[in-house]
């Protein structure tokens, strides 16, 4: 992994002098390759967490919402960082904002469940 990053950095610095646009694309590609490599292990971790939650008999609807929120957060972060790398801070900020709103919409069922619980609790 570290060797991969060092080689990629050397190539990016080498290319940036003559072809800045290709260097930018290369850095995006290296980032994608690293994330895809790690994603396999992430799947293992999530499988383990799902197994544990099933053993503890937690409501699977909430668990699925939680997983979705984590996925959207990772994707938004990744896209925002690509935009920031390319020098466009404005679009990065907007992507993060959109990610926050999507997460809020996905989390609304949990919010409603909590509020209903409180309303039932208080007579």
């Amino acid at each position: 992994m570290m060797v991969f990053g060092v080689i990629a950095t050397i190539f990016i610095v080498l290319i940036r002098q003559s072809r800045p646009e290709l260097a930018q694309l290369l850095s995006i590609g290296v980032g994608l390759a690293i994330v895809i490599y790690v994603l396999g292990y992430l799947k293992m971790i999530i499988d383990i967490i799902t197994d544990l939650a099933l053993q503890a008999e937690i409501n699977t609807v909430f668990l699925r919402i939680l997983m979705r929120v984590i996925g959207v957060a990772y994707l938004a972060e990744f896209g925002a960082q690509i935009c920031k790398d390319a020098g466009d801070v404005n679009i990065a900020a907007k992507i993060e904002f959109a990610g926050k709103i999507l997460i809020l919409i996905m989390a609304i069922p949990i919010l409603v469940a909590i509020l209903e619980g409180i309303i039932n609790f208080i007579p």
Binding site: F4, I15, S18, A33, G40
Partner: peptide, 21 residues
């Protein structure tokens, strides 16, 4: 998955150097 795509790095870097030349 579980495979680091080193070939892609060399492909893109090779294309970049080749095109500069």
């Amino acid at each position: 998955m579980h495979v680091l795509r080193v070939d892609l790095l060399f492909q893109i870097a090779g294309i970049g150097i080749f095109i500069s030349v």
